[in-house]
């Protein structure tokens, strides 16, 4: 007679449930899955051209969006990324790269990005700062749904217009296949949450 409560039958009943829970758990952790449908040419802080996302194949990427003339929000986002980088290193995870993309390519030349990184003592071993041709950056931003537009401008006595952007405050998590899996508020990202997400992706 079939014993409904025998150990084997309970296992049989629970297995599909566990599989379902595993998948729904993954979906709730990563509700988004967006691909880059083409490659983008980006230029790093050393003036090297790279093809994104191919350059980071098989790596998990934490990407933030900044402009170096920003005195307040973008340094917070950059610092958050630095703290995530430190945490990941402390946890012994080695397949994660960090990328800060400037949405101000006219002013953020590679040398400017390099200086921005150096003054903040950022470890550039797996942390990259990117700029690029204006059309490439604009196309990239559209794909990741990041908006940046000039809003506030101050004028120095010698007539320079120093402009500041209003922009989407965002960090994105990209998996080993180059797919965007999750978005976070850049300057307020929860370091514990993103670290757990990185581990969940296999970091």
């Amino acid at each position: 007679m079939f014993n409904l409560f025998s150990q084997n039958s309970i296992s049989l009943l629970l297995s599909p449930l566990l599989i379902l829970l595993l998948f729904t758990g993954c979906e709730s952790r990563f509700p988004k899955k967006k691909e880059f449908i083409k490659s983008y040419t980006l230029i790093n802080q050393d003036s090297s051209r790279i093809s994104f996302p191919g350059y980071f194949k098989d790596k998990i990427v934490v990407m933030g969006f900044i402009f170096t003339n920003c005195p307040d929000v973008c340094p917070i986002t950059t610092n958050k990324m630095r703290l995530i980088q430190e945490k990941i290193k402390d946890e012994g995870i080695s397949n994660v790269e960090f990328a800060a993309l400037s949405f101000d390519p006219e002013r953020d030349k590679p040398s400017v990005l390099k200086e921005y990184a150096e003054i903040r003592e950022i470890d550039l071993v797996n942390f990259h700062f990117f700029t690029g041709e204006k059309n490439q950056i604009e196309s990239f931003l559209r794909r990741v749904n990041v908006v940046a537009f000039v809003e506030d401008t101050s004028y120095t006595d010698d007539g320079e217009a120093v402009y500041f952007f209003a922009h989407t405050d965002r960090i994105i998590l990209i998996d080993q296949e180059g797919k965007i899996r999750k978005e976070y508020p850049g300057s307020q990202v929860d370091i514990k949450e993103i670290t757990e997400d990185i581990k969940y992706l296999g970091g």
């Binding site: 307040d72 929000v73 952007f165 209003a166 989407t168 405050d169 965002r170």
Partner: peptide
């Protein structure tokens, strides 16, 4: 060259000054 008082504001998922 310039020293100004600013505020950062949040509107939806965007930040500005």
């Amino acid at each position: 060259k310039l020293v100004e008082i600013h505020e950062t504001y949040k509107k939806g998922d965007k930040m500005g000054m």
